[in-house]
């Protein structure tokens, strides 16, 4: 197995996630796309961990941390979306343009 094949899959997933983050209208799906990007990063971390034969296994440990943080992020993200929906009756990111210049 080559290293690059894992990296290419990860990069492709990352690009899909990026595309989704930009194009999706529904806030929940934006969040889902972010999860896709994080998953791609995890593949990279684990692949490099195995490739470098790291005695500390830092790649895998960091993947665990990423997963924990992603879980926290989803929890908060859903809570925020819920709050927005409650106030504006919509979870559409197009309606969230308070920062418009």
């Amino acid at each position: 197995m080559t290293l690059i094949q894992f990296l290419i899959v990860a990069t492709a997933l990352f690009s899909f996630g990026l595309y989704g983050v930009i194009t999706r209208k529904n806030a929940v799906l934006v969040l889902a796309s972010v999860e896709l990007m994080l998953a791609a990063v995890n593949i990279n971390l684990v692949a490099f961990d195995v490739y470098l034969d790291d005695p500390l296994n830092s790649g895998q440990i960091f993947t665990l941390f990423t997963i924990a943080l992603a879980a926290a992020e989803v929890g908060i993200g859903i809570a925020i979306i819920l709050m927005i929906y409650r106030n504006r009756q919509s979870a559409d990111v197009d309606d969230l343009d308070l920062m418009k210049g």
């Binding site: 806030a27 929940v28 989803v74 859903i78 819920l82």
Partner: peptide, 11 residues
């Protein structure tokens, strides 16, 4: 969590 989010926001 995602599914609950979808349902609550009546997507």
């Amino acid at each position: 969590l995602f599914l609950i989010g979808i349902m609550i926001t009546r997507a």
